[in-house]
Design a protein around this nucleic acid. Structure first.
Lengths: 199, 199
DNA sequence: CATCGTAAAGAACGGGCGTTCTGTTGTCAA
DNA sequence: TTGACAACAGAACGCCCGTTCTTTACGATG
């Protein structure tokens, strides 16, 4: 992150075009096609650009010589809120950092699942119908955690509470009742992240 | 799953090998390299396999003829039984694209920025302090969109409204006043996603 | 036993791809 | 005014890549 910015002035915008292309096609095309993508006419210059992007750590090559993106290729800039409007398309600017959302939210991929939220029983916690819950599977949770429990063979997202020595599932919406599970409470996992997509 | 499985008996294991390779290299190599990957010696048979995988919907081709994976290429095989209805999506694991969330939220990487939310002025829309706003940069928005505007050199997240022919910035919290911008309203971008991390 | 379909092997070919080298601008500094 | 450098353009080349065609092995079927 410190020094991974391209040396040449326009490389940032070439990188941006490449990132947009990759978002569409999930591959880096031939030099000839990259000429169109970059808006230039010379294959040799395309190679020069990619060589610099490689040195900057945004792309690398397979043993076959194929170009592939690195993890920093996918990183998004997190704006420093105090930064005024300016901030054009600059890569590797001095402050603010870069993050891949998946990496942020998911620690252990093998134990993490995505579950769509239905209903508004947790609206008090800012969890809306249609949101995507990022859930880490485990069967132990603390009071106060938002957990995914299995009730009547269905997933339900509630805050884990305790009443009179027994665990309860508390919705974050006064219109819904607190669930007092009979017998053992089966916990599927705990909420570690939330994702919402607009429009 | 009914129809999208490969017709030939061994295609499933070829697909598995291809998925493993893709997990390592994030690209589909040349036919020659695929011979090694598949453990066969004939390029023409590699092409036959890929043609069938294409017909089955696991791979497709760019306009340049490059092979690229489709979304069902990454689809997880659902662990049978014991999983109640709802069917969560497993992310990560042995072979998978780990950029599911990023892909979901970000259409145009070069125009997308992450901005941390501060304050609770949008709490009515389920946007809390500390959340991460996924913002697509553009200066046009529709009434009703949640936009990032620049007010006094600082980012502010509000719903775009209109009052008496003039645009206003409406917080989703009765404790905050509606902002009536003097002069022109400078819009930085519109909210396309929201990310929250717990703990 | 003959036939068929599947699963490959292998050769042959034409074009496109990556590489390298050289040429052409425009800009800035001295 | 000269020269240096960045930012490309363009051509030339050899090899590798994708495609197609032909051939082989083998199990099932009848």
């Amino acid at each position: 992150m410190t020094d991974s910015n391209p040396s040449n002035t326009r490389d940032a915008e070439y990188l941006a075009k490449l990132q947009d292309y990759y978002a569409d096609w999930k591959s880096i095309p031939s030099y000839a096609s990259l000429c169109d993508v970059f808006g230039i006419a010379s294959k040799s210059w395309v190679k020069a650009i990619l060589d610099r992007l490689e040195k900057a750590g945004f792309v690398e090559r397979t043993p076959d010589g194929m170009w592939i993106p690195t993890s920093s290729f996918f990183a998004r800039h997190v704006a420093d809120a105090s930064v005024p409007a300016g901030m054009p398309v600059m890569v590797g600017s001095s402050h603010g950092d870069y993050h891949v959302i998946d990496d942020m939210l998911i620690d252990t991929p093998s134990k993490t699942t995505l579950i769509p939220v239905k209903g508004d029983s947790m609206i008090g916690a800012g969890i809306h119908d249609g949101d995507l819950a990022v859930v880490e599977k485990r069967n132990l949770a603390n009071v106060g955690d938002i957990v995914v429990a299995i009730v009547d063979g269905d997933f339900t997202l509630k805050t884990l509470g305790k009443e009179g020595g027994k665990f309860v599932l508390r919705p974050e919406n006064p219109d819904y009742p607190v669930i007092h599970p009979q017998g053992t409470l089966e916990i599927f996992g705990i909420l570690v992240g939330l994702v919402r997509k607009y429009k």
